[in-house]
Structures are given as structure tokens and as C-alpha cells.
Design a protein around this nucleic acid. Structure first.
Length: 117
DNA sequence: CCACTGACGAGTG
DNA sequence: GCACTCGCCAGTG
């Protein structure tokens, strides 16, 4: 990829790579996009997403395995939750997801523990 | 140009 | 498990 691309574009490209039925964290996306440690950039980039953009942003959750929008107001959190469950990802009543089961590439970038889904 | 805000992460108490 | 602080960067007024 050309490093000349916008930060947002690189983040979007990484988010698009997330397989269906899997989730990943902002930190992981930032890492894969080349912005290690800059999880905020990912969150900001997604917040700036134009409505109607075809991007699996709902597969991006925070490092705690929770849906960030779940806390926030608006029905965005509900949308994310429904989309994940529609893909087979179980979301806890507290808005939590098992990163051990659905985490994408976390073993390669974060935890040394791999899990066979 | 300056100040504030925000879909985060990790550390500390 | 929860609350607070610091670091990092981009967008907005």
C-alpha cells in the first residue's frame, strides 16, 4: 500500500479485511493499518464514516471486548449488536463479546493464545 | 493559530 | 469491576 494514502483510508482498508463472523479491537486495526498504539485514530476514522458507507465497522470493538456504542446514546449501539448477532457473534447482555472466540488476528498481534473457532 | 472534543488503550488505586 | 489520568491524532468552531 502506498503510505501516501490518507490515514482514514488505510484504516478503512484494514476494517474491510475483517472476515464475517469475527470481531477485532481498535488497537488491532490500528496495528494492522500501521498505526500501532493509535487506537483513537481508528475510533475517530469510524466516527467520521459517511452514512451508508459499506464498511463492517460493527466488527470493530474495544479491547475490553465491549461494543463502544453500546454505552453511547442513539440506536447505533443497537445496530452494531444486531449486525454482529446476525453474523453469528453472540453479544452478552452487557454488550460484551468473547474475543477469545471471535477475535480476529488477536493471536498474531496481541495474545499468544490461539483459539480454534 | 488555539482550545475542545472524541466509536481507545494501558496503567493505577 | 469501576473511576481517573496520560498519551496519541484529526476534525471543528
Amino acid at each position: 500500500m502506498t503510505p501516501s494514502g490518507s490515514t482514514h483510508q488505510r484504516i478503512y482498508a484494514t476494517v474491510k479485511k475483517i472476515p464475517k463472523g469475527r470481531v477485532t479491537t481498535y488497537g488491532t486495526v490500528a496495528r494492522l493499518a500501521g498505526f500501532a498504539g493509535q487506537a483513537r485514530l481508528v475510533g475517530y476514522a469510524l466516527s467520521a464514516l459517511p452514512a451508508g458507507t459499506a464498511l463492517p465497522w460493527h466488527r470493530v470493538i474495544n479491547a475490553q471486548g465491549r461494543l463502544s456504542l453500546e454505552r453511547s446514546s442513539s440506536g447505533a449501539g443497537i445496530t452494531q449488536r444486531l449486525r454482529l448477532e446476525a453474523e453469528g457473534v453472540k453479544v452478552d447482555a452487557s454488550g460484551r463479546v468473547s474475543l477469545v472466540r471471535y477475535g480476529w488476528r488477536l493471536a498474531e498481534t496481541k495474545t499468544p493464545r490461539a483459539r480454534t473457532i
